[in-house]
Amino acid sequence: MSDPVDFRDNRGVGTLISDLIQQVSSLMQTEIRLLRAEMGDKLKTMLGGAVEVLAGGLLLMAALLILLQALVVALAHWVGAGWASLIVGLVVAVIGVILVKRGTSNIEPSNLTPDQTTNQLARDAAVVKEQFK
Rank of each mutant, 00 (worst) to 15 (best):
L20F: 11
Q22Y: 12
Q22H: 12
Q22T: 12
Q22W: 10
Q23N: 14
Q23L: 14
V24T: 03
S25T: 11
S26Y: 11
M28E: 06
Q29T: 12
Q29F: 00
Q29K: 12
T30V: 04
T30R: 05
R36W: 04
R36H: 01
A37E: 08
A37S: 09
A37P: 03
A37W: 10
M39I: 15
G40E: 09
D41Q: 13
D41W: 14
K42E: 08
K42Q: 08
K42V: 10
K44S: 12
T45E: 11
T45W: 14
M46C: 12
M46K: 03
M46I: 08
L47A: 14
L47Q: 15
L47P: 12
G48H: 05
G48C: 09
G49E: 00
G49L: 05
A50R: 06
V51H: 02
V51R: 01
E52W: 02
E52I: 03
V53G: 04
V53F: 03
L54M: 13
L54Y: 14
L54N: 14
A55L: 15
G56C: 02
G56D: 03
G56W: 01
G56L: 02
G57D: 00
L58H: 10
L58K: 06
L59N: 04
L59S: 00
L60Q: 02
L60H: 05
A62E: 12
A62C: 06
A63S: 06
A63E: 01
L64Y: 13
L64T: 09
L65E: 12
L65Y: 10
L65N: 14
L67F: 00
L67W: 00
L68D: 08
L68H: 00
L68M: 11
Q69K: 15
V72C: 14
V72S: 15
V72F: 13
A74N: 13
A76H: 09
A76E: 03
V79D: 12
G80F: 14
A81R: 06
A81Q: 07
G82I: 03
G82N: 05
W83N: 05
A84V: 15
A84Q: 14
S85E: 08
L86I: 04
I87Y: 07
V88C: 07
G89H: 02
G89M: 01
V91S: 02
V91K: 02
V91L: 09
V91A: 05
V92H: 10
A93D: 02
A93T: 01
V94E: 04
I95C: 05
I95Y: 07
G96P: 02
G96K: 06
G96D: 08
G96I: 03
G96Q: 01
V97M: 08
V100T: 11
K101Q: 10
K101R: 15
K101L: 12
R102Y: 11
R102K: 07
R102M: 11
R102Q: 07
T104S: 14
T104H: 11
S105P: 04
N106P: 08
I107H: 03
I107L: 05
E108W: 13
E108S: 08
E108K: 06
P109H: 04
S110P: 08
S110Y: 13
N111A: 10
N111Y: 03
L112K: 04
L112Y: 11
P114T: 11
D115P: 10
D115G: 06
Q116W: 07
T117E: 00
T118R: 15
T118Y: 13
N119L: 13
Q120P: 03
Q120F: 07
L121M: 10
L121G: 07
